[in-house]
Computed example of a mutant assay.
Amino acid sequence: MSVEVVSMIITAASLLITLGGMFFAGFAWMIRRMDEKFAKVDEQFAQAEVSINARFEKVDERFDRVDQKFDRIDERINGVQTELTEVKVAVARLEGPRPRLIIPH
């Protein structure tokens, strides 16, 4: 082999090694940048999650208060219903039995 052919082979191999190193370095740079971006997005999601959870806690507290109000109203309705039944019974006792159309002999 002549010196020119050997130098061409060494030059080609050097070029391939250089291009491979550049691709590797570029890929490593891209991966590092993507990791930074993902970390930033994850942090934003975590902050948003904390904010959303706080808002849901407030909504849950409001629902609990509304449920307590409904429970009190339900108790009052049951009390009124019981009193209404007692009033019906008292009125029925005052009126006496219903008059019949046919009088038994």
Rank of each mutant, 00 (worst) to 15 (best):
M1A: 07
S2K: 10
S2Y: 00
V3Y: 07
V3P: 01
V5K: 14
V6R: 10
S7Y: 09
S7N: 15
M8D: 13
I9G: 05
I9R: 09
I10N: 14
I10H: 08
T11A: 06
T11N: 08
A13E: 13
A13G: 08
S14L: 03
L16M: 05
L16N: 04
T18Y: 10
T18V: 12
L19K: 04
G20I: 08
G21C: 02
M22N: 09
M22L: 14
F23R: 07
F23C: 06
F24Q: 01
F24L: 11
A25H: 03
G26R: 04
A28C: 06
M30S: 04
M30E: 01
I31M: 07
R33D: 06
M34E: 00
M34F: 09
M34N: 03
D35Q: 02
D35T: 03
E36L: 00
E36F: 03
K37L: 00
F38D: 06
D42K: 07
Q44T: 06
A46W: 09
Q47F: 05
Q47D: 08
A48T: 03
A48F: 11
A48W: 06
E49P: 03
V50F: 06
I52H: 11
I52Y: 14
N53K: 14
N53Q: 13
F56P: 01
F56D: 06
E57I: 08
K58R: 14
K58E: 15
V59F: 11
E61P: 00
R62C: 00
F63L: 14
F63V: 12
D64L: 05
D64E: 14
R65H: 10
V66C: 01
V66Q: 12
D67H: 02
D67P: 04
Q68V: 02
K69T: 14
F70G: 02
F70R: 13
F70D: 04
F70I: 15
R72Y: 07
I73R: 01
E75D: 14
E75V: 01
R76G: 03
I77N: 01
N78L: 05
G79I: 01
V80I: 15
V80M: 13
V80W: 12
Q81G: 07
Q81I: 12
T82M: 11
T82H: 13
E83R: 09
E83H: 08
E83M: 05
T85C: 01
T85Y: 03
T85W: 06
V89H: 07
V89A: 13
A90N: 11
V91H: 07
A92N: 15
R93L: 08
L94K: 12
E95T: 13
G96R: 03
P97I: 00
P99F: 14
R100T: 15
R100I: 11
R100M: 10
L101S: 07
I102H: 11
I103Y: 00
